[in-house]
Design a binder for these strands. Structure first.
Lengths: 338, 338
DNA sequence: GGAGGCGTAGGAAGCGCTTTCATGTGGTGA
DNA sequence: TCACCACATGAAAGCGCTTCCTACGCCTCC
């Protein structure tokens, strides 16, 4: 056996393709080909290489591969925040589909971060494409990602950027109609539509549904968490002309509102109707069970991964805008149904 | 101005360090130094470089950096599954701390994947260290990661591998004692301890707590989801010698069991006690509210990131095993408290 | 005035991989 | 028997970055 080429430096502890090549008595090119099947390799040689790989426990350095192949084989996903069941489901669907497409997933939560824009840009340097949820970063930042495939989730369409959203309008109208059907009149909307275009859409639909019956709801700003829901609802309930329906921007606010209503001695579903949005697990276990709107969160994530992949692989070059249907889930918190 | 060195190939559309160097009229080494502050650069030069960076929109290729600097600046985290509120919180804590330490986060969910072991090995090639949750992969796979810093979460200690766990034993004993104090006698444990060492620990503690009062619980296997909880509980409740307490391995099972109990016409908290574990959001909104054990999930993730970082930076070379306290949260589902 | 020192910057090597191009081998047809 | 070809393989050129080593001014000190 003649001397084989050895890497010049070769000082790290990690085993490289050179080690495998030496061990199998072949060149590094053959090792690469045998492992990736990128070109024909004699069966005997392949077996020898794979044996060496096994024996040495060779794991290709991703950086090397990525640099040479000019691809990261990774997708990013940027969340405003990760708390709550909503995002976890989206991530699950995303990761599942992305990994089926052979891509790793990098997550980034911008919440509470000093400079989200630079974090996003940094992420952009290590992925082949990314998904952005909601209003995490400004339109300018997205524009600055020029060239990088991007899909926005739960955010209004933005030029040629692909988008995946849920259709809140239809269910919101249905909810408004449903509430009007209960004979409710003093409806209060809880939430801050200016924080989220999705919420704005919901409120719009609800107004439409109620408006068809001549009802004009009031609107009170509220952060999207339970404690805020309790606080805001308590204030509303102690005022004169107490609302007979609290329509909340999400389930967390609604669950908080239920607490406030009970503390005020009201029977939810009888004296007052309360509704949420998202259908989190707690919604169906609350008593009375919460009337809400179910969003296909997992499908949302999965579809986003798919749409993104089409761009990355350049299978498609025209923008794609997807709208997923939502379901109104009527339970008892909006009034008893005989 | 004399001709500056140009990259040999230079065919991709992306702007590289060579472009910046040419634009600023300096060498690539200076660009690198100006951007990273790794060596002194004259103020005027630095300004010129940074202006060029800005103007060209230069984003360093992560692959190049990673290869040259022999670091990925990324951590992995491997989940068995991502559904449920539990994991989302862990991830949130992990991501937050990791990003403060300047590391990106790669997530991997092994659930439903054909070959988890190879997925983990693949992940290992693109991170500086990783966290493994629970029983996602076998001990052998972990051993095969030799050299890569690893922290296991919610998994029994394994040799020199760092670990972060919650102390389920103490709260489990307290729960057992508490139930005995309610005068309960026919206690059934629901869950599959062989699936998870954490659950095994919980059941052990509960047995100890009950045993101190001469009570010997029965044990029934059950998957860790709501539907299974309902199914298994329904079967137990219709048998003769109906249990007067269902102690569930997690909240999901318990919430499912509440449904079964109500369908059987039993009043939870009166006719039967039901307890969970994890204190998910639904636990406090269920009626009766669920007695359960709260785990510091966010802290768990955050601490794991910290422990991992110490290994990656070689700040510490001896194993570290952390145990986080849990809290018994007594509500109404285990019996009314006067 | 010359030697030495310091601050700044460029050249070039090298990180681990993929891929092109060239080479060598054995088999085929005339 | 010889030219030709397909196939398997190796050498080497990058991929974009960091960093070591060297070089160049310019100033200081004897």
């Amino acid at each position: 056996m003649k001397a084989l080429p050895t890497p010049p430096g070769h000082d790290t502890g990690a085993v490289t393709i050179y080690d495998v090549a030496a061990h199998a008595g072949v060149g590094i090119a053959t090792v690469s080909r045998a492992m990736n099947g990128s070109a024909p390799v004699a069966e005997a040689t392949r077996a020898r290489v794979l044996a060496a790989v096994e024996e040495l426990g060779f794991r290709p350095s991703h950086a090397g591969t990525s640099l040479a192949a000019r691809t990261h084989a990774a997708n990013g996903i940027v969340f405003p925040d990760l708390s709550g069941p909503y995002y976890a489901e989206v991530l699950l669907g995303y990761e599942e589909t992305a990994s089926q497409l052979g891509r790793s997933v990098l997550v980034l939560a911008t919440h509470g971060r000093p400079d989200p824009a630079s974090a996003v840009r940094d992420l952009a340097g290590r992925v082949d494409g990314m998904v952005l949820l909601g209003r995490t970063v400004s339109d300018e930042v997205i524009a600055g990602l020029a060239g990088l495939p991007v899909v926005v989730l739960a955010r209004p369409e933005l030029g040629d950027v692909d988008s995946v959203r849920t259709d809140g309008l239809t269910s919101a109208r249905a909810l408004g109609e449903h509430l009007a059907g209960h004979g409710l009149e003093r409806v209060a909307l809880l939430g801050s539509p200016e924080e989220s275009p999705d919420v704005a859409e919901r409120f719009l639909g609800i107004r439409e549904g109620l408006g068809a019956h001549g009802i004009e709801p009031t609107q009170t700003p509220c952060l999207f968490d339970e404690a805020s829901g309790t606080r805001v609802a308590a204030t509303l309930l102690e005022g004169r002309r107490r609302p007979d329906a609290l329509v909340c921007a999400n389930d967390e606010i609604a669950l908080g509102a239920i607490v406030a209503a009970e503390e005020a001695g009201l029977r939810v579903g009888h004296d007052i109707a309360i509704t949420g949005w998202d259908d989190v697990m707690a919604a169906r276990h609350a008593r009375p069970a919460l009337t809400t709107v179910r969003q296909p969160m997992r499908a949302l994530g999965s579809l986003a991964a798919e749409v993104l992949d089409e761009r990355i692989t350049a299978t498609r070059t025209t923008p794609r805008h997807e709208l997923l249907a939502t379901d109104l889930v009527v339970r008892d918190s909006c009034g008893l149904h005989p």
